[in-house]
């Protein structure tokens, strides 16, 4: 079991390394930093000094190693757009805001989607199943930025219940979290439903009933234990989509989290911050996948022996 987790951890680190290569190459592709960082009327002498200082005259692989060495220490240079801020420091500053928003979105997703999916499977063909399917259709045919705007319009402008934008109180989190969770709820509920339906048809479910096991235990012990692997696998994707979803939604709600920083940094060609935010996203994504691996072991005891 420990070996399994170590293996997963090692492959995550490897993936992270590849991402640093990509991030590094992207910054090479998107034009010379000389153009981006120096004023247009810089003298040749200024340019030469800049190139030497930044190691731009070194071979590419050496530049990458320097970049990697700095990255490992969390050093991506200073922000160009927000003077005086270290790039990673600025991103880390915004991270708790994003984690709060993403965490609430995940919580809303799980609390609604799992019971809905299970109930839709157990009462297949009933009213609740049809409601779940209608909800899924609605969720998947609506882009989340659009939903975000609709929610602002209804709850902030029209009803005046919740703030339109910004950060500060729990109330600020509600609308953006719902906008992010909406699509995920329909996706996860559908997935849970189909996983449960498949498992509920299995012979071992019949055998549990033959033993005299109550319907409640049949569903929540025998079926869910086996069906859980599917939603759990999806949890990695869920975490990723909630992070990317937050990029869009944070902008819609002017919510100053990492996503908002990402968009602003791209707009301002602030490469150090863009690099820092991508790496930060990647690390969050990998940690959540490692968490999924850990949950796997708990749900599926057979891995312990493998």
């Amino acid at each position: 079991m420990l070996r399994y987790l170590l293996q997963r951890g090692a492959s995550s680190l490897f993936a992270l390394l590849i991402i640093t290569v990509i991030v590094f190459s992207l910054s090479q592709l998107s034009g010379s930093p000389v153009d981006a960082l120096l004023p247009d009327d810089a003298t040749q002498e200024q340019i030469d000094i800049f190139i030497r200082e930044w190691g731009l005259d070194q071979p590419l692989w050496k530049q990458y190693l320097t970049f990697l060495g700095n990255a490992v220490q969390g050093d991506f240079g200073v922000s160009l757009k927000w003077p005086g801020e270290s790039a990673m420091g600025f991103v880390l500053d915004r991270m708790p805001a994003t984690l709060r928003l993403g965490g609430l979105a995940i919580l809303i997703t799980l609390i609604i989607a799992l019971p809905l999916g299970i109930a839709a499977a157990v009462y297949k063909g009933s009213a609740i199943d049809r409601i779940a399917q209608g909800f899924a259709l609605l969720g998947q045919s609506m882009p989340n930025f659009w939903l975000g705007i609709v929610l602002i319009w209804i709850f902030s402008v029209w009803l005046g219940w919740l703030p339109t934008s910004g950060i500060g109180s729990f109330a600020h989190l509600i609308l953006p979290a719902i906008a992010i969770a909406w699509f995920q709820i329909s996706a996860l509920a559908r997935l849970t439903r189909s996983a449960m339906l498949e498992v509920l048809d299995a012979e071992y479910i019949k055998l549990a009933r033959v033993k005299g096991v109550s319907e409640w235990a049949v569903v929540f012990k025998h079926a869910l234990r086996n069906a859980a692997v599917v939603p759990l696998t999806y949890f990695g994707i869920l975490a990723a989509s909630i992070l990317t979803g937050s990029v869009v939604i944070e902008s819609v709600y002017s919510y100053p989290g990492m996503g908002w920083v990402a968009i602003e940094a791209i707009r301002g060609r602030d490469f150090p911050v863009v690099q820092a935010v991508i790496i930060a996203y990647a690390v969050i994504y990998m940690l959540s996948n490692l968490l999924v691996d850990l949950l796997y072991v708990i749900v599926n005891p057979r891995i312990k022996h493998g």
Binding site: A202, E203, K206, L207, V210, R225, N226
Partner: peptide, 24 residues
Amino acid sequence: MRKVRGADISMILQDPQTSLNPAF
């Protein structure tokens, strides 16, 4: 009826490959 199942009448199902729960 649940008290009868498994206690007074029990049953052996057809397929040994799938009639045990793989998770327990």
